[in-house]
């Protein structure tokens, strides 16, 4: 297990380096950053001055080394638009998006997992049909529409929750639920299909033949195997939720990473965009690595190496 852990971490580190280099290079692929900063009114001389001031004239490898070195210490440079440190801007946004994303993920899992298991226990039964309806509507109903409807009904008509912002914890309720709703279908369906497959295996029949209580057969013997694909999918889903949904954050006026990324792109605020891309891709690296480790912990066959 230890050698597997080390191997997996080395791979993750490699991916992180590659991802950071790519996210850095992307900025230069979209055009000359100096001209972008100078803006439409800037002259060729302005652009040249900016190029020197920001060090864009140096070889790209040197610029990358300089940027990644600072980034490792938490320094992502100055925002061109706000003229304050990028880390300060992002530092304010990350907690909001992380809270929203984590809560939405936990809410989605809390509904998808038991519902998927229950649906698998009696395929085509009542619960399975209900879950299917929920899944189809979850995928078919656009979240901006659902968000607006939720605001109208619970915020405006009944006044139960604030209609926008996250200044109070109540402000998180609607965005969390709407975001969770979009994540439920996939999580539930993979739980259901994994569980149906596992429940038909010989080893589940063996567990039943031993006379074990149904609860233990389902929750220990079956679920342990059925959650393996769910964990892999969860890493991706959680990554999506933590990246901040531009739609949800806009509808609920939540100041998270999604909106910041969108606005910074419009403002050509390159240091902010670079930093967000780097941070989000690192989220994915961490999540997929964690999912792989969790799967290896659950399924010894995945550990490979010395059998």
């Amino acid at each position: 297990m230890l050698s597997f852990l080390l191997r997996r971490l080395v791979v993750a580190l490699g991916v992180a380096v590659a991802v950071s280099a790519l996210s850095f290079a992307l900025i230069f692929l979209t055009g000359d950053p100096a001209i972008a900063i100078a803006g439409s009114g800037g002259s060729a001389g302005d652009a040249e001055a900016i190029r020197l001031a920001y060090g864009f004239d140096r070889p790209i490898v040197v610029q990358y080394a300089d940027w990644i070195g600072s980034a490792l210490t938490g320094d992502f440079g100055q925002s061109i638009y706000f003229n304050i440190p990028v880390s300060e801007i992002i530092g304010n946004r990350i907690p909001v998006t992380l809270t929203l994303g984590m809560l939405a993920f936990l809410a989605a899992l809390a509904i998808a997992l038991p519902l998927g298991v229950a649906a698998a226990m009696r395929p085509n039964g009542f619960i399975d049909r209900f879950a299917l309806v929920l899944a189809v509507s979850g995928q078919a109903v656009p979240s901006f529409w659902l968000g607006l409807m939720a605001i109208v009904v619970f915020g405006v008509w009944y006044g139960l929750v604030p209609i926008s912002g996250t200044e109070t914890w109540q402000g998180y309720i609607l965005p969390v639920l709407v975001l969770a709703y979009s994540a439920i279908p996939e999580l539930m369906r993979i739980t259901r299909s994994g569980m149906i497959e596992v429940l038909n295996t010989d080893y589940i029949r063996s567990a039943q033949a031993k006379g074990l209580p149904t609860g233990r057969v389902i929750l220990v013997h079956a679920l342990r195997n059925a959650v393996l694909p769910l964990i892999s999918l969860s890493a991706v889903q959680l990554g999506i939720l933590l990246s901040g949904s531009i739609v949800i954050e806009s509808v609920f006026a939540v100041n998270g990473l999604g909106r910041l990324a969108w606005e910074s792109l419009l403002r050509s605020d390159l240091p902010v965009v670079q930093a967000i891309i780097l941070i989000l891709s690192l989220f994915y690296v961490v999540l997929t690595t964690a999912a792989d480790l969790l799967n290896a912990w659950l399924d010894p066959r995945l550990r490979g190496g010395a059998a």
Partner: peptide, 29 residues
């Protein structure tokens, strides 16, 4: 089941839970 009568199956390769140790599977009942 599991007390007065027990059963073994055709394919032992599929009949043991791959994610649980042999010890747990033998002792749980």
């Amino acid at each position: 089941r599991g007390r007065d009568m027990a059963m073994i199956f055709q394919d032992p390769n599929q009949s043991l839970n791959p994610t649980m140790t042999v010890g747990v599977q033998m002792t749980e009942a």
